[in-house]
Design a protein around this nucleic acid. Structure first.
Lengths: 189, 189
DNA sequence: GTCTATATATGGATAGAC
DNA sequence: GTCTATCCATATATAGAC
């Protein structure tokens, strides 16, 4: 197995275990076992557990952002852009449940949420849409950062529900209602 | 210091540290230090770290439920009941930020969210309101458990924002908009 | 009930052979 | 690059004096 493949095996094993057992609940030994490599090999590729976490975070964000970047057309009405972002995020979190849950976990973990590890970065897409919506006066009279947070949390809640009922991912009626709920929360009455 | 006071000091210290540094990030030694008792004393009152977590969880839920139980009048329209629950929860999470964050943390921690520790229990109040709303056909055509989850997450998001801007807790315009966002997400258009 | 001192296990990380 | 064996710090929990 070449170096690249070994590195990938470690990343995949680590992501899975971190999501299943938590950040502190997962030992480097367990990651190595799951990846079918020796502990020394793990530390050869990732000099510390923190570096491993950072690599996973960067990977997950890059993956998500690449997925979200496409598709949002600045010429569309804000409501359409928002729908594109929300549904896109929903689809991504269904397609990549572990990466999604890993990012959620990072954000929810004290002393990690504040570190560079949790630097949002990719939610810029949503932020851009929200800021344009506010300028146009079609969103609620709430702070922009709160609107972004609401959009994120709502998206994550929907994603968690759909991950339990995968058939909903392609149910147009459900997706309509789900987006309607988001728009109902964010849009001006 | 009597036994009751010692127990309380340990609980308060533990809650604070768990919220600040995470469940696994907090050692029993650190809790004892913060509570100004010896490690042996801690383990005298709580035979294990798990028991301490359970006691903390039970305390936080009882506190929240006692607060939420009052105030919901079954004769009110569902929208009013919902507002009572949402605003009540918001106020509670502002008044008791550590208990609130501790419950959030429990729910977000793998291998803890699934354990008896995370048994919801007190969100029965919200569940009751949502079920009545669905029967009356005034809520969105989404599964009841998803509606409850949306209400909870939205409430938690608002609470997190208000904890950063405490002055909003008594701003009627903000509370109106905040509740409007919840109702927009949950209520039928 | 509270303390100090310690047992026991396990964690992250390293050394050095291959 | 990968392995085995091991170091060292720290974590939970206990023992037993006061």
């Amino acid at each position: 197995m070449n170096a690249r493949a070994t590195r990938l095996a470690i990343l995949n094993a680590a992501r899975r275990l971190f999501v299943e057992q938590g950040l502190h609940g997962t030992t480097t030994a367990a990651v190595a076992r799951q990846a079918r490599v020796a502990v020394g090999t793990l530390f050869h590729h990732f000099p510390s557990k923190t570096v491993l976490l950072e690599a996973l975070a960067a990977d997950a964000r890059a993956h998500r952002d690449a997925h979200l970047g496409e598709g949002v057309d600045p010429r569309d009405p804000v409501a359409d852009q928002l729908r594109t972002v929300v549904v896109g995020h929903l689809r991504w979190s269904i397609a990549e449940p572990e990466r999604h849950r890993f990012l959620e976990l990072l954000g929810a973990t004290p002393n990690v949420a504040a570190s560079p590890l949790a630097a949002a970065g990719g939610d810029d897409v949503l932020l851009g849409v929200v800021e344009r919506g506010r300028r146009e006066g079609i969103l609620r009279d709430l702070p922009a950062d709160l609107l972004v947070a609401i959009g994120q949390r709502l998206g994550a809640t929907l994603a968690a529900h759909v991950s339990l009922h995968p058939e909903l991912a392609d149910d147009p009626a459900f997706l309509d209602q789900a987006f309607a709920a988001c728009w109902g929360a964010l849009g001006r009455d």
